[in-house]
Design a protein around this nucleic acid. Structure first.
Length: 788
DNA sequence: TAATAGAAAATTTTT
DNA sequence: TTTTCTATTA
């Protein structure tokens, strides 16, 4: 959370409860009057466990915020007696603001309103000693985590190539998400990495973290959980403290978060969870839909309230989304409805393109058309499955001169220059922060290369001391070469100097001094590359943003928890983002490109998680559709370029699952081969019982049938109408030969559907480099070319 | 030790 | 296609 203030603040400075109540009463508790009966029930049912199943667009946030306002205004709780958890900082911020609006003023003292991670961090700082940490521990981000694990793997003499740190990080995260410490890992599970050494590495990692006085993201939930489990007095204290608990997006909780909540809720059982099982899209990072599905079992006597009245979308959009999601098993079941029904409402549009570039072109045209009709660009969103899809749209919009903004793109705090600068600050404030120190010892280059760093490491490890300490010790000897010695001495004195100034100077000033004196700014000034000026600008922005905090420590705390991207562009612009980051947002018009098998649903998810993965992808589709207020345009392309080579694709099975009655298929002249309703006809829509078999639809059946080895090239002889099926085969055949070698020979003349005729220049397995007569040199998979 | 060239790998989603 | 890592050379 963005609140760096120490823990004891609220009790003395926040307004008396009477004050809040009085303020709210003065506005005449009217906040209840605007709610519908279900919402009102969800707000007023304050005692005991409550599960609010809030479908998309049913006023979920409104219920949560009104509930908090109600608890405060009715005098049931003071601000600091309410625990309110969200997943994102954005949601926390919004909640705080909206409660403030309801109460009529800024809410003070709601220190337990925040993300799981920020609240976990707060708890952990209060009881750090119980976990063997200092209260000023640092929070490592993923990057630090992986660098640390890399060191541990290397120290254990394990081939880092064969057992990448990234994979171990994933494994450890997975364990932590399930609430498992190193000692809880079953013998068998521990074998999952490096021939059975997974558990040992996990243990080593945790020990190393303790030495560094650091925690990772997973620890922010797991360690507080462990503390609550093992210290009854602490738990009792929180039981007394939290009169009411609220949880947003309950469907996204993982096991550790769930256990933490359950433990806390055992106190007075006043827990209210709000969520939507149909919008659970974070299973891949440990979320357990099961948590929401079995709420009533966990909390006997729980009241379940369904919010099904949708205030956002047209009947067509709701109809399409609702029908799609019925193909999932294992849901609590809700049916969204709207009372607004206008015969002029557009149906959900399905359209297709030849390739991703044409897809972008078509969307661009649609947007310009809407714009001419007075549609605000801010109210338009393009929601993609994977971020690489964004590029085609960006390219197109740049040529069109169409304003756009990418939401959730590269994060400010993840940029190299920002991380470097932060490492300097961290080392200054926390001399024991080895990871930060290591990051900048030789940035900018100062002659302290791998050899010298290794010396430091050996020394530090041998004596179990921080790198800084080891450096100081080593400088007393003559083990390091001259050049390194001189600059290391310099660096050490600089840090000592900066450290002295921490309390003397304003932190923004000190930050400037550090970046200046370390030569870091100079390094970028000397850099002639195109992005150097931008980086310098970012550094300035970083210092500007520090102004809002009252100390360096407070700022660093904020940074590690709030990885939010900055404000985003202003003015009127189209929004481009992934489906995941679109959750919780809404737009008048939503474009959903790339509905193709393999991309959406993602092949990887399908491979790794099977049916559960497919259902999660389907929920993602549901989330996408329900972002739209008025218009949803679903698209797929017949060809897509991935990793620099072309692949063709089958329309997504989700298209088959859209109900005919709410969808229109649009044919576009710009389609080269008439790949419109000819190949993708109304017959493919799902008019059957959704539970029968989602895969019984014609399109999917055909694709499945063709997976084998049907002769290729047939459709070329059948005229333009069936150019579609040919591509389907191309894709499926392509998959079956990946890794094999090609039966083409160099120099051979071949035909490609997109590029025409050409000669093979180079063969690399099944990847061909071909000099095309018209399109020039391209790399393609061999299954996409034919002998003429 | 640093710079460079060349090869290999990788591409989902994020607190 | 792009990025990231590695090995080589100055």
């Amino acid at each position: 959370m963005s609140d760096p203030a120490p823990d004891n603040r609220p009790t003395d400075t926040s307004p008396k409860p009477g004050g809040i109540a009085a303020r709210a009463m003065a506005r005449g508790a009217g906040y209840l009057d605007t709610l519908n009966p279900e919402q009102r029930l969800a707000v007023e049912e304050t005692e005991g466990p409550v599960l609010v199943l809030a479908g998309a667009g049913t006023g979920k946030t409104r219920v949560l915020t009104t509930r908090i306002a109600h608890l405060l205004a009715s005098g049931r709780a003071r601000p600091w007696q309410i625990l309110a958890v969200t997943f994102t900082n954005k949601a926390a911020r919004e909640m705080k603001n909206r409660v403030g609006d309801l109460i009529g003023g800024v809410v003070e003292g709601m220190q337990w309103l925040g993300t799981f991670h920020s609240i976990g961090a707060r708890m952990l700082r209060r009881h750090a000693e119980l976990a063997g940490l200092n209260p000023d521990f640092t929070i490592l981000d993923t990057d630090d985590q992986i660098r640390l694990l890399k060191q541990i793997i290397q120290a254990a003499n394990i081939d880092e190539k064969r057992w990448p740190a990234r994979q171990l990080a994933g494994l450890i995260d997975h364990w932590k998400n399930r609430g498992l410490g190193p000692d809880d890992i079953a013998e068998a599970d521990g074998r999952a990495f490096a021939d059975g050494r997974g558990r040992a590495l996990y243990t080593a990692y945790q020990e190393r973290l303790k030495v560094l006085n650091a925690v990772d993201f997973g620890d922010l939930v797991l360690t507080p959980l462990t503390i609550l489990r093992t210290h009854k007095d602490v738990l009792a204290d929180y039981h007394q403290r939290f009169r009411y608990m609220l949880v947003d997006e309950y469907q996204d909780t993982n096991v550790a978060q769930y256990l933490w909540l359950r433990l806390l809720a055992q106190g007075n059982r006043n827990v209210c969870c709000v969520g939507d099982d149909d919008q659970s899209i974070y299973g891949w990072r440990g979320a357990e839909v099961d948590n929401i599905l079995r709420f009533e079992k966990d909390f006997p006597g729980a009241r379940v309230i369904r919010l099904e009245r949708n205030y956002r979308s047209t009947a067509h959009i709701l109809g399409a989304a609702s029908h799609l999601i019925t193909h999932n098993e294992g849901r609590l079941g809700k049916t969204l409805f709207t009372e607004i029904s206008d015969p002029d409402d557009d149906r959900v549009t399905v359209a297709s393109s030849w390739d991703s570039e044409e897809e972008a072109r078509a969307v661009g045209e649609d947007i310009e058309e809407l714009q001419r009709g007075g549609h605000s660009l801010n109210e338009i969103a393009i929601l993609v499955r994977a971020s690489f899809q964004m590029r085609a749209f960006e390219d197109r919009f740049v040529t069109l001169g169409l304003n756009y903004r990418v939401i959730g793109g590269p994060r400010f705090y993840e940029r190299q220059e920002i991380r470097d600068a932060l490492a300097y600050f961290r080392t200054t404030v926390q001399p024991a922060d080895d990871l930060a120190f290591e990051r900048i010892v030789n940035t900018p280059r100062r002659g302290i290369g791998d050899a010298s760093v290794k010396l430091l490491h050996d020394r530090a490890r041998a004596e179990s001391i921080p790198l800084m300490q080891a450096a100081a010790d080593l400088l007393q000897t003559d083990e390091i070469n001259k050049r390194a010695r001189i600059s290391l001495t310099n660096l050490m004195t600089s840090f000592a100097r900066w450290r002295q100034q921490v309390d003397a100077l304003p932190h923004t000033e000190l930050a400037e001094i550090i970046l200046e004196e370390s030569g870091y700014v100079e390094m970028w000034q000397a850099d002639r590359s195109a992005d150097a000026p931008g980086r310098l600008e970012n550094l300035k922005e970083l210092i500007r943003s520090m102004d809002e905090f009252d100390s360096m420590t407070g700022f660093l705390e904020h940074v590690s928890l709030v990885m939010d991207a900055d404000g985003g562009g202003d003015g009127d612009a189209v929004n481009i983002m992934t489906l995941h980051s679109a959750k919780g947002l809404e737009f008048d018009t939503v474009f959903l490109p790339g509905w193709e098998e393999g991309l959406f649903p993602s092949q990887r998810t399908l491979d790794e998680n099977g049916r559960a993965g497919l259902e999660e992808e389907r929920r993602l589709a549901y989330v996408g559709l329900t972002r739209a207020r008025r218009r949803a345009i679903v698209r797929f392309a017949a060809n897509r370029r991935m990793h620099g080579l072309w692949q063709s694709s089958v329309p997504s099975r989700f298209l088959d699952e859209l109900p005919e009655s709410h969808v229109t298929v649009r044919e576009e002249e710009s389609n080269y081969g008439g790949y419109g309703s000819a190949a993708y006809g109304a017959s493919r829509f799902d008019t059957s019982d959704p539970f029968a078999s989602p895969y019984a639809t014609p399109g999917w059946q055909r694709a499945k049938r063709n997976r084998g080895s049907e002769p290729r090239g047939r459709s070329r002889h059948e005229g333009p109408l069936s150019s579609g099926p040919k591509l389907i085969e191309g894709d499926l055949v392509a998959k079956s030969v990946i890794g094999g070698s090609s039966d083409f020979t160099a120099g051979e003349r071949v035909f490609h559907q997109k590029f025409g005729y050409g000669a093979i220049a180079l063969i690399d397995g099944n990847k061909l480099t071909i000099d095309f007569e018209k399109a020039g040199r391209k790399r393609v998979l061999d299954s996409f070319v034919e002998r003429p």
